[in-house]
Amino acid sequence: MFGLANPDRFMRVTRPLVPLAWGAAAILLAVGVWLSFSAPEDYQQGSTVRIMFIHVPAATLGLGAYLALGVSSFFALVFRHALADAAARAAALPGAMFTSLALITGALWGQPMWGTWWVWDARLTSVLVLFLFYLGYMALRASIDDEQKAARAAAVLGLVGLVNLPIVKFSVDWWNTLHQPASLIRSGGTSVDPAFLPALLTMMAAYGALFLAVWVTAIRTEVTRRRVLTLRQRRAAMA
């Protein structure tokens, strides 16, 4: 892990990884979509159960990307690795996209199943808050002009968010037991039927590969961008 902190080594190691990750994402996504459509219909939900295959991995990856962002922020803050900062920055946008995908598909799923687009359920609220965390992080990053200062301020916020997310999760769960849970949602949860598992797991792997591909590509782009910037400054200094 620490060996990869050297940008040169990182670029060398990840060069073959990028097409591999994109290829794996494309194949897994294709297989996942095919499995999703060939999965049997749910006896209660009918065909809408297929929304699960898009929705559940998006929510998982939305949370996973924040984990990546927070851990990268920690390394950027403590060890001052420029690469860790690029990693934190690169995780924010895909994470926010996955989270909003989870929110949108959740609303589309909720309408036929629960009869409403949105309920103030603990899980939905937590995901919405996660989305707000992403927005705050990106807003902070975007509004400080000095890149290094923006990076360190964002790292502090990313770490604070990582510490606070479990607390927010706990408080939202506590809040939900206070208010009567919506009667539309059956508590206890439905365990996933084995018939849906292949499609769900494949889609999960596909989303994971997609995130990895986007993330590593974005980090590589950032490293290249900084190199170009340095070269330009050097040329300007020589001229």
């Binding site: 808050v129 707000l132 965390f133 927005l135 705050g136 807003a139 902070l140 509004s143 916020l157 604070v160 968010g161 606070n164 607390i167 927010v168 706990f170 408080s171 939202v172 506590w174 809040w175």
Partner: peptide, 15 residues
């Protein structure tokens, strides 16, 4: 910016 950064952190005390 302060509002955007701070309000998500206000959630637990508000709850």
């Amino acid at each position: 910016l302060i509002a955007a950064v701070v309000l998500p952190l206000f959630i637990p005390p508000v709850i």
